[in-house]
Simulated scan of single mutants.
Amino acid sequence: MIKITWQYIPLKSDVAFLQIKQTEISQIPFYYPIFYVHVYSAIFILFAGFFQFNATILKKYPATHRNIGKFYVLVVLFLSAPSGFFIGLFANGGLYSKISFTTLSLLWFYFTLKGFSSIKNKNIEQHKAFMLRSFALTFSAITLRFWKVILVYLFQPAPMDVYQIIAWLGWIPNLLIVEYYLYNQLKK
């Protein structure tokens, strides 16, 4: 992800993924800066999220957990999810991809907000569950690219077909895995 993000430094409008988004860049006000808000903010929350599930940090350094968590929540709620929603409105792959990416952004926002409000209400179990869901959606940045490589390697589908498929595969399996995990935790 760092390598992918690095392609967008310095700001350019004709690099990597943006090469196929020139219509949006030229015709949709704010597409270009909002895209960059999403790319730059998402890399930081992906990194921050990995530390939040470390039991050692949670037990030995609870203030660090809280501070990283506050950073994660603020960035998701005010930068990453809203910018993801906006660029999702113009996703490649047509209506199915747009529905997927905007739904992903809305759920990401909701799960993060619920996780934050849960800990404010001292409901630790609910906080854990919603933050796991939130990070499952954050992690879609990685799984989407993983599925893209697999699908292209195995099936060589048309580019827009790939977008329609990975738009959903990028996050639904992640969320299902978390829900399965949470379900098994309840049974214990």
Rank of each mutant, 00 (worst) to 15 (best):
M1L: 15
K3C: 09
I4R: 12
Y8P: 04
I9K: 05
P10K: 10
K12C: 14
D14N: 15
D14M: 11
A16H: 08
Q19D: 13
T23Q: 13
E24A: 11
E24L: 09
Q27F: 04
Q27N: 09
Q27G: 02
Y31G: 03
I34S: 05
V37D: 01
V39P: 01
Y40A: 06
S41N: 05
L46R: 01
F47V: 13
A48Q: 02
F50A: 11
F53C: 06
Y61T: 09
K70R: 15
F71N: 13
Y72K: 06
Y72G: 10
L74F: 05
V75T: 11
L79Q: 09
L79N: 06
P82V: 02
F85W: 07
G88S: 04
F90H: 14
F90A: 05
G93F: 04
Y96S: 15
K98T: 09
K98C: 02
I99Y: 05
L104N: 00
F109N: 04
T112M: 00
L113V: 03
K120L: 14
Q126P: 00
M131K: 00
L132G: 00
L137P: 00
L137V: 01
T138P: 09
F139A: 12
T143S: 15
R145Q: 05
F146K: 06
F146Q: 04
I150R: 10
I150G: 03
V152K: 10
Y153L: 15
L154D: 09
F155E: 02
D161R: 10
V162G: 00
I165D: 00
I165K: 04
I166Q: 01
W168G: 05
L169P: 01
I172F: 13
L182T: 03
Q185D: 08
L186C: 09
L186P: 00
